[in-house]
Measured scan of single mutants.
Amino acid sequence: ATVHVKGVTYHFDNPEQAEKFAKRMAKELNGEVHVDGNTWHVD
């Protein structure tokens, strides 16, 4: 799974980790999470 945060890409072997990371980053950055298959975007 892949997480894109403000133009930076993070790779996770575990999709659950990717989801938790994306949601945590969105919270910290006051952003929104969008999911597209195995790819998470934090804007």
Rank of each mutant, 00 (worst) to 15 (best):
P15L: 11
Q17I: 08
W40R: 02
K6A: 13
N38T: 10
Q17R: 07
F12Y: 03
T2F: 14
K20E: 14
D36W: 12
P15F: 11
G31F: 09
M25D: 00
K23A: 09
V33R: 02
V42S: 02
A1Q: 08
N30V: 05
N14T: 14
E16R: 10
T9S: 09
Y10G: 00
R24P: 00
F12K: 00
L29V: 06
V42M: 02
P15Q: 11
A1L: 06
R24V: 07
G7Q: 05
F12T: 00
H11Y: 15
G31W: 09
D36H: 14
H41F: 15
K6T: 06
K6M: 15
V42R: 01
A1W: 15
G37F: 04
V8C: 14
V5G: 02
E32M: 14
N38S: 07
V33I: 14
Q17M: 12
E32S: 15
E16T: 10
V5K: 01
T39Y: 07
Q17K: 10
H41T: 14
D36I: 15
H41N: 06
W40E: 01
D36P: 01
M25Y: 04
G37N: 06
E32H: 15
K20M: 13
T2D: 06
L29E: 03
H41S: 08
E19C: 09
H34R: 15
G7L: 04
Y10A: 01
V42L: 04
L29H: 05
V3D: 00
G31D: 03
Y10I: 05
D43L: 15
V3N: 00
R24L: 13
W40S: 02
K20S: 12
K27N: 08
V33M: 08
A1R: 05
P15A: 14
E28G: 04
E16L: 11
V33W: 13
R24M: 14
H11M: 08
V35K: 15
T2R: 11
V33C: 08
K23I: 13
L29D: 03
D13A: 12
D43G: 11
N14G: 07
E19R: 07
T2I: 12
T39N: 14
G37S: 04
N14D: 14
Q17V: 09
G37I: 03
A18R: 01
D13L: 09
K20C: 08
R24E: 12
K27F: 13
E28N: 06
A1V: 11
V3Y: 01
V5P: 00
A22H: 00
D43S: 15
N30D: 08
G7S: 05
A18V: 00
K27R: 11
L29R: 03
K6G: 14
N14S: 14
L29C: 08
V35Q: 15
K6S: 13
H11C: 11
D43I: 15
E16D: 12
H41K: 08
G7V: 02
A22L: 02
E28D: 07
L29M: 09
W40L: 05
V8Y: 10
K27Q: 12
H11Q: 08
T9A: 11
E19I: 05
K23G: 05
N38M: 10
E16F: 10
K27Y: 13
L29T: 06
K6I: 07
Y10F: 09
P15W: 11
V8A: 08
V5Y: 07
D43A: 13
K6N: 15
K6H: 12
H34K: 10
V3A: 03
M25L: 09
G31Q: 06
K6W: 11
N38I: 06
T9V: 15
W40A: 02
M25F: 04
V42K: 01
H11A: 07
A22F: 02
G37C: 04
